[in-house]
């Protein structure tokens, strides 16, 4: 393993769903990398393929979905070909996932301490029970849960939504994973609670040096949290780069439109710069650029598929007519 090898490198990943109504290309030629200690923000509107991308990385795509191409290199090891057993060992140990609904992680009928100790022992049986208990208590304290001793003996339903999400995060972080994939974990929570969780996650990543993929539809969260950002539209990453580059100097018309749509970016009472139309159905995508029907810059060139270009180091773009520094 070389020193500057990224923790995760996804190359031309394609995940398709073979539904009765046709083939749905939920993830189509997606590439990105995250290094240790880095936060990658994955933004896009609903149905753009963010969740499926996250699931594909950890091998959780269920039929009729299937990874049909590309590689997922986790510290150099390709996870696409890896067996179910290997993936299961990685999940919850080296790679952790946090879901929008914390009950995806938590078992409603088991006490929190049981679940946490089981997670620790499942991946490292050498740790004794009391040491595991100690670690569980630590983990709860670290995500900001007051009086962790009491809370350890509670059942998930005895927690509020924000607390539950924190417990799920604590469990995800128990084994100090190298990679954390967080799929809209704060979307269902209140602003003050979201603030608390962002704070804890930020602190933990800084401390443990884990690589973090933060999936969200909220550009503002990404702005405050991420180092790099990938903007997804209709299963593809249309623009990527550092947060400052992408948010301050968007080149893809979709990114620019999205930023213009955020109310706090606009003057009070003035109409928002809206993107016309709506997200296309992935089942009936016309050939060429998927954003064509909504794009003000579209012309005949856009009838072909825009290839991935690298306009400057560290950036990626899929557009024939990028906007030069529109601000």
């Amino acid at each position: 393993m070389t020193a500057n090898q990224p923790t995760l490198s996804v190359e031309s990943l394609r995940t398709h769903f073979f539904t009765r109504a046709g083939v749905l290309k939920a993830v189509d030629d997606v590439s990105f990398t995250v290094s240790a200690g880095q936060v990658l923000g994955l933004v896009g509107e609903s149905g753009s393929g963010k969740t499926v991308t996250g699931f594909s990385v950890i091998g959780l795509v269920d039929p009729p979905g299937r990874i049909v191409g590309g590689r997922v290199l986790f510290k150099g090891e390709d996870l696409v070909g890896a067996g179910e057993e290997r993936l299961r060992r990685l999940r919850g140990d080296r790679v952790a996932m946090i879901f929008q609904d914390p009950m995806m992680t938590l078992n409603p009928v088991l006490r929190v301490d049981t679940q946490m100790i089981e997670t620790i022992l499942a991946h490292d049986p050498a740790v004794g029970r009391s040491a595991a208990m100690e670690r569980a208590r630590d983990a709860l304290g670290r995500v900001g849960i007051p009086s962790p001793d009491e809370r350890l003996r509670a059942y998930p339903h005895q927690f509020s939504g924000g607390m539950r999400q924190r417990v799920a995060i604590a469990i995800a972080l128990l084994n100090r994973p190298d990679l954390i994939i967080a799929d809209e974990p704060t979307t269902a929570l209140d602003v003050t609670i979201q603030g608390q969780i962002l704070y804890e996650v930020q602190k933990l990543c800084r401390e443990t040096g884990a690589a973090l993929i933060w999936i969200t539809h909220d550009l503002s969260v990404i702005a405050g949290l991420a180092d790099t950002v990938c903007v997804m539209y209709a299963g593809r990453i249309v623009e990527s780069g550092t947060v400052d580059d992408v948010l301050d100097r968007p080149q893809h018309p979709y990114t620019a439109g999205l930023i213009g749509s955020v109310p706090s970016r606009n003057r009070r009472g003035v109409k928002l710069a809206q993107i016309p139309g709506m997200t296309p159905s992935l089942l009936s995508l016309p050939p060429g650029c998927a954003f064509r029907a909504r794009c003000a810059r579209a012309d005949d060139a856009c009838l072909a598929e825009p290839p991935l270009v690298i306009p400057s180091p560290g950036r990626g773009l899929r557009c024939f007519h990028p906007q030069a520094d529109a601000r």
């Binding site: 016309p276 139309g277 709506m278 159905s281 009936s284």
Partner: peptide, 9 residues
């Protein structure tokens, strides 16, 4: 307001 183009079939 702008007419939204057709809904998906």
């Amino acid at each position: 307001a702008e007419i939204v183009p057709v809904a998906p079939a």
